[in-house]
Design a binder for these strands. Structure first.
Length: 492
RNA sequence: GCGCCUCUAGCUCAAUGGCAGAGCAACGGACUCUUAAUCCGCAGGUUCUGGGUUCGAAUCCCAGGGGGCGCACCA
């Protein structure tokens, strides 16, 4: 057992092993047969009177969080993934008592003994025997403040997750959310699929891709910026309801709301249009909140917010009028749109048409002001190369974004399924790209070929999972909802 | 990419131009019911790095590095 205890370092300094020579710790077992979890014990015996003995012997395993020595007795706080339980050791009844008192905070141990309560009534495992499972050669920081340095927290997430309850809570919520979404969609007949991460032609969104190279094929490949075009190929192939939880990659700046790799839920439903997608979106988000938080009434950044369906629907032009006082639409004279853009601080580029100008005014004046969930509908065709023409409003497409707490949560449309029209849209994008727009799309000939086989009327939806987790967990940084966020590599 | 802020012991933080400190952790010791146990003792520093100003720099200036925030881009 751990006889001599050396110093214990911290996140920035490891101590040498306190036990055997490096690479060999013969007393450390290969497996542990724990038969109780901390929280279960505390829950099961919460009504026990002080100084009770249950006669039940258990083995618990976890990390030693705190230790209180009193001479010939010692108390420890053991934490496992369920919670915490007190260990009560004494020279009179604990094998290896001296070693127990020399354990470091953070050491993994297994402890066996009777479940009892102490004089003060705290439920404890009265340790008859214990085993060291792993030394903590680095400490987890101040036992009260833990680790709060943001750099350390994100770079050494293993330590942050152990030290900070909130960090664990958020990642557990993320896991529960994705799991729930899968079950919910499968319950509605959706099929989960996987599509390529390597794309010969990046598409499905306007964003700068990462480029990599395949040696054997000697071709450049792009890490996907969206799974959209492949999912719609699957609809062509007969998958009427598909979804993918897709990690996507965009070569853009980092910010509290942007990580270069992030997760999107995309789904496509044949025979549906964007109004179906609105109903699905509000049901999904409100349902997730009810299931995971027990309510649709949430607090984000100190402000209350209701996710209950149905959500407000309003056109982009209506919302711009509400928030900027300017009555603008796609048919407004272009000079008027350009003036409007300039008046709100946008510097229009010569190539921008009225659709782009209108969108810029919206983003500058309106989007961040929208707090309660709202479906912003009817986007300009110019800025929506994959969405189908609006059934009755020229120049617009059947597209919406859901804005919640001032941020885009999802993007959806009635999918453009006419290969001739799609080619025209791609060509306009390719022209913009040739003119210097690094984020514009290319012509994807294979996708056009797929459309030529026939894509039925289809509704499509993309939801930013990271954003949704942020919303549900009241996190203000995307880094908090990603286990290992992208950081500048450490320099030696 | 640009601007602003920030970096002190393993951790959390003081010291604002005049001897680098505290609490916790660690280390030595006391203690048979503690709850961030308590008490006694001991130790711990390239004040992010490199220049400069000054009799004297953690503190002021310049450059670089890490991080945060804002802008831009986007989801």
């Amino acid at each position: 057992m751990s006889a001599d205890v050396a110093g214990q370092g911290g996140p920035d300094e490891a101590s040498p092993s306190r036990g055997a020579a490096a690479g060999s710790e013969p007393s450390i077992p290969y497996r542990v047969q724990a038969d109780a979890r901390a929280a279960d014990l505390v829950e099961r015996y919460k009504d026990l009177a002080p100084q009770s003995e249950t006669g039940r012997t258990v083995t618990v395993a976890g990390r030693l969080m705190l230790r209180r020595e009193m001479g010939r007795v010692a108390f420890g706080t053991l934490r496992d993934s369920s919670g915490q339980v007190q260990l009560f050791a004494g020279k009179a009844w604990t094998d290896g008592f001296d070693g127990f008192t020399r354990l470091s905070l953070g050491d993994w141990i297994a402890a066996s003994g009777e479940v009892v309560t102490t004089k003060t009534g705290e439920l404890s495992v009265k340790v008859a025997s214990w085993q060291l499972l792993a030394e903590a050669r680095r400490g987890f920081g101040d036992k009260w403040h833990g680790i709060s340095d943001l750099d350390t927290r994100y770079r050494q997430r293993y330590a942050d997750l152990w030290a900070n309850e909130d960090s664990r809570r958020v990642l557990l919520l993320r896991s529960s959310l994705i799991s729930w979404i899968r079950r919910w969609l499968e319950g509605r007949g959706f099929v989960e699929v996987e599509t390529p991460v390597f794309h010969p032609t990046p598409g499905g969104a306007t964003a700068k891709p990462f480029v990599t190279h395949h040696n054997a094929l000697d071709v450049d490949l792009y890490l996907r910026i969206a799974p959209e075009l492949y999912l719609k190929r699957l609809v062509v192939g007969g998958f009427e309801k598909v979804f993918e939880v897709a990690r996507v990659f965009r070569n853009e700046g980092l910010s509290p709301r942007h990580n270069p790799e992030f997760t999107m839920l995309e789904l496509y439903q044949a025979y549906a249009d964007y109004t179906d997608m609105m109903r699905l979106t509000e049901d999904l988000v409100a349902g997730a909140a009810s299931e995971l938080l027990g309510t649709t009434e949430i607090t984000y950044g100190g402000r209350s917010l209701s996710l209950a369906a149905p959500w407000r629907r309003a056109t982009l032009s209506e919302l711009v009028a509400e928030h900027s006082g300017m009555t603008l639409d796609i048919d407004s004279p272009i000079s008027e749109l350009r003036e409007a853009a300039e008046s709100v601080g946008v510097q229009p580029e010569p190539a921008w048409g009225s659709g782009k100008l209108l969108l810029e005014v919206y983003e500058k004046t309106t989007e961040s002001e929208l707090w309660e969930p709202v479906f912003v509908t009817d986007y300009p065709k110019e800025v929506s190369p994959l969405a189908r023409d609006h059934r009755c409003k020229a120049g617009y497409v059947e597209r919406f974004e859901a804005i919640v707490a001032g941020r885009e949560l999802c993007n959806a449309f009635s999918e453009l399924n006419d290969p001739v029209e799609q080619r025209l849209r791609f060509e306009a994008q390719a022209a913009a790209k040739a003119a210097g727009d690094e984020e514009a799309m290319s012509v994807d000939e294979d996708y056009l070929r797929a459309l030529e086989y026939g894509l039925p009327p289809t509704g499509g939806l993309g939801i930013g999972i990271d954003r949704l987790v942020m919303l549900l967990s009241d996190s203000d940084a995307i880094r908090d909802v990603i286990a290992f966020p992208t950081l500048r590599p450490e320099t030696a």
